[in-house]
Computed example of a mutant assay.
Amino acid sequence: MPLRSLSRAMFLGFLRDRMTLFWAVLFPLMFLVLFGGLLTDQGASKIDIAQVGDVAALDRMPAPAREALEQSLEIEKVTDEAGAIQQVRDGDLAAVVVEDGDRLVVHYSQADQVTAARVFATFQGIVDSANLAVTGTEPTYSLASQRVEDESLKTIQYVTPGLLGWAIAMSATFGAAVNLVNWRRTGLLRRLRLAPVPTSSVVLARVGVSLSVALGQTAIFIGLAVGAFGLQLTGAWPLAIVLVLTGTLAFLSIGLLAGSICRTEEGAVGLANFIVLPMAFLSGSFFPLDGAPGWLQGISRLLPLRHLNDGMMDVMVRGQGLEAVWQPMAILLGFAAVCSLVAARLFRWDA
C-alpha cells in the first residue's frame, strides 16, 4: 500500500536524521533532566537571617512555632551588628534582627522586593504572636492549614507536563516545516505529485509519523520522570495521550503553514523557532505564570501550547478527569483546522 510504504520511509528518515532526533527528543529531555535534578524536592528557598545578641521574641518562641519558622528562615546568631548589616547591603544576608528594648528592629534591603516582603510579613507575625503571649489574651481566631495536593507531591510533577508540551510543539512544528521545504527544494514533492500516489496518502503518512513520534516522546518523558525523578501520576493520566495527539495535530498544522511560506530550510527553522520558543515561555513550559500581569495572562490564553500544558497538568497532576480535556482538545483542533486551511491555500508543489 502506498500509505504504508510512505509512512515507513518517512519514519525511517526521521530515525536516520540525527539532527532531527536531537532537537525533537534529546534536547527537550536535557531540560527535563536539568529541571528535574535541580528542582525535585525543593520548595521556596530559605531566607538567611542574622540575629544579633538575644532576641526574646525568637529565643522564647514555643518549640512547634520555632520549628515551623525554621522551614522558611535560616537564623544564625552573630555578634558583629555592623558587619552583618553590611552583608545585607552586599546581598549576602536577607536581614539582621536586633532587640532594642521593647522593639524588634529588622534591617533589610529593598533591592529584592520579594524577599523583603517575606521578611516583613514573617517578623510582623512574630511580633503579633509575642504581643498576644505577653498580654495573656486568648486569640479569637486560629489558623489551620492543609495542603490540597498529596503530601508526596514533588516539583517534577509540575515540570514534566510543560516540558512535554514544549517537546511536542518543537517536534511537530520543526518536522513539518523543514521536511516540506526540503522536499520542495529537492523536487521530491513534484515526483510524489506525478507518481500514482494519492495526495491523501502523503498527508496521512506525514500525520501518522508525527503522531507516532509524539507518542514515543510521551513514553520516554513519562518513563524517565517516573523512574528517575519520582513523578507520581494521577488516575486520569492516560487522558494526556489524547491531548498529546490533538496537540501534535495543532503544531503539525503550524509547521505546514511555516513550510508553505518559507523557501529555504534555514528560513523554516528560523520561523519555527520564532513561533515555538516565545510560545513556550508565554505558555508556562519553563516556569509558572501565576505571578504574570493580567495582560500577559490574556495573551498566553490565546496560544495553543498554553491549553496543551494546562490540560496535561490537570489530568497528570491535579487528578481531574474528562471534564478537563474537552476545552483544550476543542481549542487545539480549532487551531489545527484554521492553520491547515491557510497552509493549503499557500501550499506550493514547486520551489
Rank of each mutant, 00 (worst) to 15 (best):
V226Y: 12
G187Q: 00
V114N: 12
V55H: 06
V98Q: 06
Q320F: 15
G319S: 15
R8Y: 12
A205D: 06
F286E: 07
I168K: 00
S45E: 14
A111C: 04
A292W: 08
R18A: 04
G319R: 15
P293V: 13
V78E: 10
V269S: 12
I254E: 05
F274S: 02
M316F: 01
P139D: 03
T246Y: 08
V159K: 09
Q110Y: 09
Q87Y: 01
L282G: 05
I275K: 02
Q113V: 14
N179A: 10
G53Q: 02
L15Q: 00
G259E: 01
D350G: 12
C339N: 12
V88F: 09
A176W: 03
V114G: 10
V202I: 15
A272G: 07
E151I: 02
I156A: 10
E323S: 08
A228P: 01
L256M: 11
L231G: 10
Q42S: 12
P139C: 00
S7K: 01
G311D: 07
L257Q: 03
V213E: 02
V242G: 11
D59K: 01
A121N: 13
A82I: 05
Q297S: 08
V342K: 09
S253L: 09
L239I: 03
M30L: 09
R191W: 02
A44D: 15
L21C: 13
A117C: 12
L282P: 00
R60G: 13
I75F: 06
A44G: 10
Y141C: 11
A24D: 01
L153G: 03
V269H: 11
L245N: 04
E81R: 14
L302K: 05
T115A: 09
S210Q: 08
S340W: 08
L58C: 06
G101V: 00
I168Y: 03
G37S: 12
V97R: 01
K77P: 14
D59P: 02
L69F: 04
L256G: 08
A214I: 13
D290W: 05
Q146Y: 04
V88E: 09
F27V: 13
G298D: 13
T218V: 00
L215Q: 05
L39W: 12
A177G: 06
E74A: 15
S171P: 07
L233D: 03
R206N: 14
S5H: 12
L252G: 14
L26D: 07
L163D: 04
R306H: 12
L143E: 09
V119R: 05
V25K: 05
E149V: 00
D150E: 14
S340F: 05
F11Y: 10
T135N: 08
L163A: 02
A172E: 07
G267S: 10
S283V: 03
Q320M: 15
I275W: 05
P304G: 07
L346I: 01
A236E: 03
G208I: 06
I85G: 02
S142V: 14
Y141I: 14
F251N: 00
L15R: 11
L58S: 04
A236Y: 05
T40K: 09
K154I: 00
M30Q: 04
D54Q: 15
F287Q: 03
S5A: 15
T248N: 05
S300H: 06
A94M: 07
S210I: 06
V134N: 14
E70S: 04
V207F: 10
I331K: 01
R89F: 10
D48K: 15
K77I: 14
S72V: 15
A195I: 02
Q217M: 02
Y108D: 14
A236H: 06
